[in-house]
């Protein structure tokens, strides 16, 4: 059922390509505006690159979070899922994985190209890729809790940001620190382990919290 739920999520995204492309285009645009706005010199770009990439990734994830449950809520699919004999946790888990596959993964795959533009070294690009690969699933998992809580609200976007951004900060710090360390030629394996640990923690806890938050939101519908 997990596979089926993921498949359904992917199929729905394919049929609405705007939802799929919006976060990615946003990410690319934001990152590519910085060299234009600040300075095209390698020295400056190297300095700001980790922060720019991570902040853009964070905001673009938030952007895609808002619609995560909204459509299913509005047409009644979500309530059918919640009362079905299939475990709701698995169905919600499928939605989170699907969400990451269409918004997080493309961003991770796109990032090396942008990193080259921001004059990161080879080692830095490697670190960035690993940090995003470990970090974006955390963003999706944590974000889904906020998305669940704000389903019933018409303008939930701003509220999700307020609820979830504080939780994103450790990921942001670890992610950027990892790239900076790599640029300076220092070992960053500690950061990798930290990110992996947070990822493991979110995988094991966030789906439960999301399932409960969705149930609460449904109860008000």
């Amino acid at each position: 059922m997990l596979i089926k739920s993921i498949q359904r999520e992917l199929l729905l995204s394919m049929r609405r390509p705007a939802d799929l492309l919006n976060p990615l285009v946003f990410f690319v645009l934001v990152v590519s505006l910085f060299p234009l706005g600040i300075s095209p010199s390698d020295e400056v770009l190297k300095e700001i690159a980790p922060g720019v990439i991570w902040v853009a990734a964070l905001l673009s994830t938030l952007l895609s979070m808002e619609v995560m449950f909204r459509n299913d809520f509005e047409d009644g699919s979500l309530e059918q899922m919640s009362i079905s004999p299939q475990p709701f946790l698995v169905l919600v888990g499928g939605k989170i994985v699907g969400q990451w596959l269409v918004s997080g993964l493309p961003l991770v795959l796109m990032s090396p190209v942008l990193a080259v533009m921001l004059a990161l070294s080879e080692e830095g690009i490697k670190a960035m890729f690993i940090s995003l690969l470990l970090g974006t699933p955390i963003l999706s998992l944590l974000g889904s809790i906020g998305a669940g809580l704000t389903i019933g609200l018409k303008k939930g976007g701003a509220l999700i940001a307020i609820l979830i951004l504080p939780l994103y900060i450790p990921v942001l710090i670890l992610g950027t620190h990892m790239i900076i360390a790599a640029e300076q030629g220092v070992s960053y394996s500690g950061d990798v382990l930290w990110l992996a640990a947070i990822l493991a923690l979110s995988i094991s806890l966030a789906p439960f919290a999301t399932t409960e938050s969705v149930r609460i939101a449904l109860s008000d519908g």
Binding site: R8, L11, L12, R15, R16, N71, D72, E74, D75, G76, S77, E79, Q80, I83, S84, P85
Partner: peptide, 17 residues
Amino acid sequence: EKHPIYLGHKAGVKDLL
């Protein structure tokens, strides 16, 4: 032994399927 079928105000039908 089996779950009931529930039909709500919202049909639970997805526009994109």
